[in-house]
């Protein structure tokens, strides 16, 4: 989460992720009303906003990271933030800064016409989410629109709610893979926090695992000076479990 606990700490965490071997970095930009998020990301968003985080700071963070690494960077935020800036105008700025893609959890394919047009124009990936209850026909529609990867929401719930691995999640993963047929990678996220979670999902076909709240919790309890090394260590463990 950009600006949480501070802008300096976000950069340290990003450096730790790169060092630990992350394949893609998802940067959360705070929204006042994050309705798909659980308590951990809600709290991080609130604090970040209280500290005055603005979009210019996000863009300068992206530019800073780009000076150090070519790792793929995707932004996760809510529709209103993007709509308010103007899809076209913001995507242009974001691409120039070095962003690669966008995840918008409250953007449905039905409402995405302008959004997709603007993203396409500026060559940004639009990563859509699917859920275990998404119908087959709808899944096919979403697979057509998603680029970069497809984000499979592992559980019925908000982000960060930890659970045992559910059998419905495994079926959803297998069904999703049947429809994507290798055309686009499938990343799985929500409630994933341990190497053993990742191992199981990878075994059942996940191409990537997305870890958010667990990482924020780690950053929260780690002193600033040690964030980079702690994040690197955690990332290394997670990465190892994908192999």
């Amino acid at each position: 989460m950009v600006g949480y606990p501070s802008h300096k700490d976000t950069l340290s965490a990003v450096r730790g992720l790169i060092e630990g071997g992350a394949d893609i970095i998802e940067l959360g930009f705070p929204f006042s009303d994050p309705l798909a998020d659980g308590p951990v990301i809600q709290h991080a968003s609130t604090i970040s906003l209280e500290k005055g985080t603005k979009m210019v700071q996000f863009l300068s963070l992206v530019r800073q990271i780009r000076k150090e690494s070519q790792i793929p960077l995707v932004l996760m935020t809510y529709t209103n933030i993007l709509y308010h800036k103007g899809y076209e105008k913001f995507f242009k700025l974001a691409k120039e800064a070095g962003l690669d893609g966008i995840i918008t959890p409250d953007m449905t394919v039905e409402e995405s016409k302008e959004y997709l047009k603007a993203a396409k124009k500026h060559n940004l990936d639009t990563i859509f989410l699917v859920s275990p209850n998404t119908s087959k026909s709808r899944l096919q529609e979403i697979v057509k629109q998603t680029t970069g990867f497809l984000y499979l929401v592992a559980v019925f719930g908000t982000t960060g709610v930890q659970n045992k691995i559910q059998s419905y999640t495994i079926s959803a993963l297998q069904n999703t893979k049947k429809i994507t047929r290798g055309k686009v990678p499938v990343g799985i996220g929500f409630g994933i926090s341990t190497p053993s979670d990742i191992k199981s999902y990878v075994k059942h076909g996940a191409d990537a695992a997305i870890v958010g709240s667990a990482l924020i919790k780690l950053i929260e309890k780690t002193p600033s000076a040690k964030i980079q090394s702690a994040v690197a260590k955690f990332t290394r463990q997670l990465k190892l479990s994908t192999k």
């Binding site: 529709t79 449905t108 039905e110 275990p132």
Partner: peptide, 11 residues
């Protein structure tokens, strides 16, 4: 109007 919602709510 419209429906700007998480995918889980679409069904």
């Amino acid at each position: 109007g419209g429906k700007y919602i998480p995918e889980t709510l679409v069904p």
